[in-house]
């Protein structure tokens, strides 16, 4: 039941183009540009190899996450290869028929754990980014649109948050939850990203405030809300989109750290790449492959989102329109 809801969420995300920020921007532009911007962006995306590489990577991992139950050959929690694992003698179950990547430190099927881990990892990455982005955009827009006292107050709060090392802040926030779960991880990781987005967006908005086209809108007597939402925000979003794709990767790694510290989901049956990476760290000298697989997955997913973000930014940049 819970799984189904998660699937729906992932589906919804996939449908909206893979990233929450894109969906947001599209709706902004749709309001102002009469809808042709999306069509136009798509025309350019279609011929961009960068976009296709990124989209295919992200899509593959999304499919993997959605159909994880069907793809994974074994139960990721069961200690199936326990008999072949002797940690005391530095012996791990090797790859064998039915177990393409062999077993992990406890003799669980590494491949099944990777497959099911994609679900948790993507969920954390995407949701943490979405929440961080939403919070950051609210703060950034407030600061950038009103300036003055609002700006000073918001920015001082943001500065204080930024002055605490990100992981430390995330740990402190995660520790506030009495029962650690994956949602406490998501929220902890998301909160750390809020000031990053807020600061970036605020800087962009302030730069937009000084532009002639915003001045022209003020001179026309356009009200504050349309100036902010039609002129300043859409023109400030490009670097925020790129940042969001980077944050997906950062969140995945931060979440891994939290799980590793035992602040994440305590459910051993639902593996997660970060957690796997943490475990593999103990035996990195003897079994680098154990760390390689989850780390490799994180890198590839992060790359996929980054490429996607970069191509979207290019496509949405009106100066590239021809």
């Amino acid at each position: 039941m819970v799984m189904d809801r998660k699937k729906e969420r992932i589906d919804a995300l996939a449908a909206s183009g893979g990233s929450a920020s894109t969906a947001l921007l599209d709706s902004e532009d749709a309001k102002s540009g009469g809808g042709s911007i999306i069509a136009d962006a798509w025309r350019r995306l279609r011929v961009s190899p960068v976009f296709w590489v990124g989209a295919i990577i992200v899509l593959l991992f999304l499919l993997l996450a959605i159909f994880a139950d069907l793809i994974a050959p074994h139960d990721p929690g069961q200690l199936l290869l326990r008999s072949q694992t002797r940690l005391s003698r530095n012996q791990l179950a090797p790859p064998q028929p039915g177990f393409p990547l062999g077993g992990d430190l406890l003799g669980r099927d590494e491949f099944s754990r990777l497959v099911l881990g994609s679900r948790q990892t993507l969920l954390v990455g995407v949701f943490a980014t979405a929440i961080g982005l939403a919070g950051g955009m609210i703060l950034g827009t407030l600061a950038g649109a009103f300036g003055g006292v609002v700006d000073t107050v918001v920015m001082r709060v943001v500065d204080v948050m930024l002055s605490i090392p990100g992981l430390l802040l995330a740990i402190s926030i995660a520790a506030l939850f009495t029962t650690p779960s994956q949602w406490s991880v998501i929220i902890a990781v998301a909160v750390v990203q809020i000031p990053v987005f807020a600061r970036l967006l605020r800087g962009q908005m302030l730069a937009q405030r000084g532009t002639d086209h915003v001045l022209a809108a003020r001179a026309l007597g356009v009200r504050r809300a349309p100036i902010v939402f039609r002129h300043m925000l859409p023109n400030s979003m490009s670097p925020v989109i790129v940042q969001a794709t980077v944050v997906v990767a950062v969140s995945i790694i931060d979440a891994a750290a939290l799980s590793f510290l035992g602040l994440g989901s305590q459910d051993v049956a639902t593996p997660e790449w970060g957690q796997m990476l943490g475990e593999a760290q103990q035996k990195i000298d003897s079994y680098p492959a154990l760390a390689f697989w989850p780390a490799g997955c994180i890198v590839v997913v992060a790359l996929g989102f980054t490429l996607l973000g970069e191509s979207l930014r290019e496509a949405l940049d009106p100066k590239n329109r021809r």
Partner: peptide, 24 residues
């Protein structure tokens, strides 16, 4: 009152929002 007095800018491109059509 702003309706009664308008401005024309030096930089024709910079003074037009790149994301808006002429119509909007």
């Amino acid at each position: 009152e702003r309706r009664r007095m308008q401005m024309v800018f030096q930089d024709p491109l910079g003074s037009l929002d790149p994301r808006q059509t002429v119509e909007s």
